[in-house]
Every structure is written in structure tokens, then in C-alpha cells.
Design a protein around this nucleic acid. Structure first.
Lengths: 139, 139
DNA sequence: CCCTAAACTTGATTCATTCCAGAATAGTGG
DNA sequence: CCACTATTCTGGAATGAATCAAGTTTAGGG
């Protein structure tokens, strides 16, 4: 099993608070959800947590590397706990569903495009666009 | 030279209007600008064009494929006229500058990751994150 | 058990984008 | 060349994700 939230927070020298644990738990069970959904999930157990707290927590966890923020074009920010393995995402054009995709071309393939106008490139982000099973079925 | 705006619009069966020509011209001269900048550029020549018109035009041109919309995480939508050659972009983390990057791994490399949870993938979008020459110089 | 910085609550604010109702206009058919 | 209609444009209000601000609570070191 993944280390429990408390251990993760301490390892990142972040204070262990109820809202933070709740957000981590919510994201564990529901990958790729937006902020609003996180708020709902958190409030299921802790009704008094403010939306601002969730925004703060998500930012803190993202900065600490415990959570990864993804932001597909035309959608609001989503979050997931699967970090540090440079995987990518498929996004459904019609319903917005997101699924994980392991890096196709081995590891960090695209960083080879380094001769980009003098830019120092440190990350290559890939987003696949398409149609999810549910949506392509209907048509 | 690129075909003039009027020809492009007619080829796409779009009406030829002053705002549309102005937007096309603005984007030709200034790639990767956001909507607000487009509005300013357009108004330099045609002060009466409404912001709504620019939004409408950008959407119409994008749907017609005359313009491509890019939307890096954490930034507002940008537009460019270079289409139909599947190139990618480098984005500067500190100043937000964007530059074009030709597809590194040949053509449409990444579509090979097709076995993604039953998704039918039709496009692979790549965004390189890094630091532009100007910004890395200062540090 | 105190104390202080960090975190949280509440509520207002920003800003890109969209929605709406009415006026203008491109371009087809007469 | 003119009239007609759908499309487009104008001006202004509304939406919604996200941020800011002031004051209260709390984690956790001393």
C-alpha cells in the first residue's frame, strides 16, 4: 500500500492537518477530479472545511510534489496522487474523462527536442486527445 | 506569401468581414498572443470592433482550421496561424513566452500509445516546459 | 503547557470567457 | 442593381474558477 497521508506530509515537512489528510484520501480514491469535486469529497467526512482550505491544500501538496496538477485545455484543473513516474493522459473530447497512459517511447523521450530557440527544457508534457469507450459507443 | 485572408475565408466558406480580416492579419504578425492582445492589435486599425466579435471570430477561425488555439496550463488561451503541420511548443515557466518546436520524433510519433484504456486517440499534443533565453540569462 | 508561525474560515474580488438582445451587414436570389 | 435573411457584430450583463484579504484557529517545537 502507499504510505499513509500522515507519513507523506511529515516527509515533506508539512503540518499534518485534517483538511490535508482528507484531500489526500479523496484523491487516492478518485484520480483526475477537479477542485469542486475534491471539495465535495472532503466535505462528505468533514463538512466544515472551506473551499479556500482545499485550494490552499492542493497548492501546498502540489508544490511539495505529493500531488500532480493537470490542466487539459478547456477544462478546469484536475489533480492526482500518482506522481514521479512521468506518465501522460488521454482526454475524451466529448465527456472530458481522463485516463493514465504510460510513457510510450520509453522514458522522457521528447526531451530530445532540446534545440528549441535556446530554451532550457526541463519537462515534456504529453496530452492525447480522443474519444473514450463510453462516448464512442453511442455514436 | 501566405494566401491573403479573404481567400482563406472564402475557401472555408466563411463570410469575409472586417473583424475577421483584422484578426487574421494581427495573428500573422504576432504568433502566440492571447485574446486580449488580439483585441488591442485589431483595435489599432479598427477601433470599433467589440471584444465579443474577437472571441467569436477566433472561435470561427479555430473551427475552420485557419487558426490554432493553444492553452498552456495556467495561462489564458493563445492563438497562432501556423496550422496543419503538427508542431509543438516550448513554454517559459517564468515569463510565459512561447516558441514553436518542430515535432521531434518525426511525424505524429506519440500516437503509438494507442492502447489507452479503449480510447480512440486522434491527436497527441506536446508541451515542453523550461526557461527562455532571456529569463535564464538573468538568474 | 505556551507560544508563534502556519493553516483555516468567511466573504469579497478579479478576470477570462460566455450569454443575451438588438443593430448591422454579407452575399444570395430576384 | 436592389431587397431579403441568416449570419455576424455591438454593447452590456452574467458566469464561474480561482485569488486576495482580514481575522481566528491550531500544529507542534520549546
Amino acid at each position: 500500500m502507499t504510505p499513509d497521508g500522515e507519513a507523506q506530509l511529515r516527509a515533506a515537512s508539512l503540518r499534518v492537518t485534517r483538511p490535508r489528510l482528507a484531500v489526500l484520501t479523496a484523491l487516492r480514491g478518485h484520480p483526475h477530479v477537479d477542485t469542486d469535486t475534491v471539495i465535495s469529497l472532503v466535505r462528505a467526512d468533514h463538512p466544515t472545511v472551506s473551499h479556500q482550505a482545499v485550494y490552499d491544500v492542493l497548492r501546498a501538496l502540489t508544490n511539495a510534489g505529493l500531488v500532480r496538477r493537470i490542466e487539459p485545455a478547456g477544462a478546469t484543473a484536475r489533480y492526482e496522487t500518482r506522481t514521479s513516474d512521468n506518465h501522460h493522459h488521454v482526454v475524451c473530447r466529448s465527456c472530458g474523462a481522463i485516463a493514465d497512459v504510460d510513457c510510450a517511447v520509453g522514458h522522457a523521450p521528447c526531451l530530445t527536442a532540446s534545440h528549441g530557440h535556446g530554451f532550457v527544457i526541463d519537462e515534456a508534457e504529453v496530452v492525447y486527445w480522443g474519444t473514450c469507450p463510453d462516448c464512442s459507443e453511442g455514436s
